[in-house]
Amino acid sequence: MQEFSDALLLAFELIFSGDKDLIEIIGLSLRVSLTAMVVACALGLPLGAILAISRFRGRRPVLVILNALMGLPPVVVGLLVYLHLSRAGPMGSFGLLYTPTAMIIAQVILILPIIAALSRQILEDLNAEYAEQFLSLSVPRRAVISALLWDGRYALMTVALAGFGRAIAEVGAVIIVGGNIDHLTRVMTSAIALETSKGDLPLALALGFVLLLIAFAVNAAVMSLRLTTGRYANV
């Protein structure tokens, strides 16, 4: 127990002294996961919108698969990306393995289904409300999509945050494709997982604490967005 309270004390010291290694790790985590979120939204939101307004044969199965992909295990994603990026793999020549880019790619794959599936649900409801009016106005398809994305923006921000929350908290994928290399690919979760076993408890605890704070902040943001959505929609 003594060991633990010492470590806790050291952890807070690290946080409040603004330890350089700590800041670097947090910074990289945010950079990787925010980039993954932006890329996944750029691809996933339009995909969700298209699925929301399209009726085609085989739509059901596509939606079932998409929903199932929301639960992709991060280690499996990590493994698949590893196989593609490793020297022997099809994209090995780019030399991306063990770089932040590899971590971003893995996280994009991990959260893209979440963004697409959740936004599809939201936009389908919105479209049900608008569809007949839009048909009456002969709104072209592209304008329908952008109108749905714009009018659903507050709800869609909660989707983006859900994706970000999943990305920043996952460890399986970033460890495999990043490798937790000091000053290069060490992010919060991989550091916690690996430094704990090496005995660097203060760093692990400090990172764990920051990660918790981020999780709380994301949830608070989602809740306040929900309130905003409600207010704007139903006054």
Partner: peptide
């Protein structure tokens, strides 16, 4: 070239 007003107005969330 036609337009329609519905029983319950469908206004955009804007």
């Amino acid at each position: 070239r036609q337009a329609m007003v519905f029983q319950r107005p469908v206004l955009l969330r804007r």
